[in-house]
């Protein structure tokens, strides 16, 4: 196996595009190195992207955030603005594994590993995040929900690398939240993950809502119906019942060692209800803080 640690994105793209055998991008390594050790992947070339400055920083540009794909969860958590403006994304990123894993694991890796259960992805979907992709043909943007196609499958072409995530400019009275269900209190892979982003009007009515669900289908989902179910409401019971039903209806889960189909469907509804309450309270509170 060959190891390269280029300092420019173009160099990384070249290496990846021209690789003869199996080439892999190494960010935090918390999935890739596990897969290498268990001989699930046996790359001929590993391209460590952590020396590429563009992929390692967090920049606030006119209210939007550009997060390097190789920034670790622990670093994200230490960014005071990001934590305040996108608490749901940050809590999702910091649910990935242990403290030790958070010291390494990145948003880019969590997305490109293409696991249906990745914690940060439903939160990023809810947030309306986009990814900037660099490749042999130049750069392009893609919505996060369009990146993962199925287990271990992404929309990236050969030679393409996710460089950064862009979180849109926040409007007033908006907030996000993420909840997941696991059997223990830490260290498990999500049995269900649910992220939501809400925008309220001054009267407390929801005017925009996006919900992402993880671990309930072959890939993380944007559940449009769930968002639509609560738009126009202030989370009254009928709206919550519609939300719960929409979340459950979107699930196409499997039975596995982590949970049954029925359990996942049931929990998706429970989490949807719980997480919108958190986001709603945060959005209301944001009026006092942000302006």
């Amino acid at each position: 196996m060959r190891y390269e640690a280029p300092d420019r994105i173009e160099k990384a793209v070249d290496l990846l595009a021209s690789a003869a055998g199996e080439a892999r991008v190494l960010a935090g390594g918390t999935d890739l190195i596990v897969q290498m050790k268990s001989e699930i992947v046996e790359p001929d070339l590993v391209i460590d992207v952590k020396r590429i400055a563009e992929m390692r920083g967090v920049v606030e540009e006119g209210g939007a955030f550009r997060i390097g794909a190789a920034v670790s969860g622990a670093e994200l958590k230490e960014h005071p603005r990001l934590r305040k403006v996108w608490p749901g994304v940050i809590e999702a990123a910091n649910l990935i594994g242990s403290t030790q894993v958070q010291g390494r694991a990145t948003l880019g890796g969590n997305l490109c590993n293409a696991s249906p259960a990745a914690d940060s992805v439903p939160a990023l979907i809810a947030a309306g995040a986009k990814v900037i992709i660099a490749g042999p043909a130049g750069r392009r943007e893609l919505a996060v929900e369009d990146v993962v196609l199925g287990p271990r499958k992404t929309a990236l072409a050969k030679g393409e690398i996710v460089v950064a995530f862009v979180l849109p400019k926040r409007v007033p009275l908006a907030a996000d939240a993420y909840l997941r269900f696991i059997p223990r209190t830490e260290m498990d892979i999500a049995v269900v993950g649910c992220g939501v982003d809400l925008t309220l009007d001054p009267a407390g009515k929801i005017i925009a809502a996006r919900m992402g669900l993880g671990a309930v289908a072959a890939r993380p989902l944007l559940v449009g119906e769930a968002g639509a179910a609560i738009i126009g409401s202030s989370l009254d019971e009928p709206a919550l019942a519609r939300l719960e039903a929409a979340a459950r209806a979107a699930c196409r889960p499997i039975d596995d060692k982590r949970g049954t189909k029925e359990f996942r469907v049931q929990i998706a509804g429970v989490l949807a209800r719980r997480v919108v309450h958190i986001a709603y309270e945060r959005a209301k509170a944001s009026a006092k803080v942000s302006t």
């Binding site: 390594g29 050790k37 268990s38 460590d48 952590k50 670790s72 242990s98 010291g103 390494r104």
Partner: peptide, 26 residues
């Protein structure tokens, strides 16, 4: 060997990591 037990914990530039999930060349 998979980052699930923490027995291999070290710090890397002050950051807590599992040394089983870091390549030495990094």
């Amino acid at each position: 060997g998979s980052g699930d037990c923490g027995a291999c914990s070290v710090t890397l530039d002050g950051r807590l990591v599992c040394s089983c999930l870091v390549l030495a060349v990094e």
